[in-house]
Design a protein around this nucleic acid. Structure first.
Lengths: 116, 116
DNA sequence: GGAATATATCACTATGTAGTAATACAGTAG
DNA sequence: CTACTGTATTACTACATAGTGATATATTCC
């Protein structure tokens, strides 16, 4: 299989998506939405943040195509539109877990052969 | 399967990793390294960037645990240390491709039912 | 030792963006 | 129409970081 090189345009798109996910608060919002769609007010209550900030993060996620929204009365409900994000998070989580396992073993090894 | 909620610490780690990948230039560096380890000089030549900037990006990738390095004479060779990044990119790429396919079809549908 | 090469680091500027308070806007109820 | 509720937007500050030229550090060669 030939190595697939991404075009500059694709690199920008991919980097932009990673940046959208590169914010802990937005990951928390996505986690809340994983259980099902929620209104802005429900998110504000669940995350104990202030409303303008959450609205802004929701806008970023929406612009990035990660979530969708629908209006119902005066409320607006947001929902995951691309479940891929959870696969991404799972991959990173397992990688982090692996990394800390290695770090731990390296530390243990260092302890074992400690001088003096 | 219960929904797995990440701790705040894990959220920070994951977000940090996404941010590390959220830069087109760093993705290009990773792409170059996918073919095999390269020295800083080789990367500077391949990417046509200036050396301090590339060294800085390499440092960020190194700190993030995505690449490793070894010295050989005065040169320093960098190499991928966590191939997970390519799985991540592949996932995002396919998602982007799917998204643009949907956008295209939505546009085509709009054309079909154009008014007047 | 000194010169040359490869890389890292520093200092600085410019840009992006998170957080936040105030305000605007849209929908609903009376 | 007015008051009220839920959400978005604006204006601003603070902070992080990408790019860049100058400089420091480390290794090899003489």
């Amino acid at each position: 299989m030939a190595r697939q090189v991404m075009s500059d345009k694709m690199l920008d798109l991919v980097a932009r998506r990673f940046r959208t996910l590169g914010e802990p608060y937005r990951l928390r919002i996505l986690q809340e939405l994983e259980a099902g769609e929620k209104s802005v007010g429900e998110l504000v209550a669940a995350l104990e943040g202030n409303q303008p900030n959450i609205s802004k993060h929701l806008q970023v996620l929406f612009d990035g195509g990660l979530i969708g929204r629908r209006r119902e009365g005066t409320s607006i409900f947001y929902a995951i539109s691309d479940p891929m994000v959870f696969k991404l998070c799972a991959l990173v989580c397992s990688s982090e877990a692996e990394k800390s396992r290695r770090d731990y073993e390296a530390l243990a090894g260092q302890q074992r052969q400690v001088k003096r």
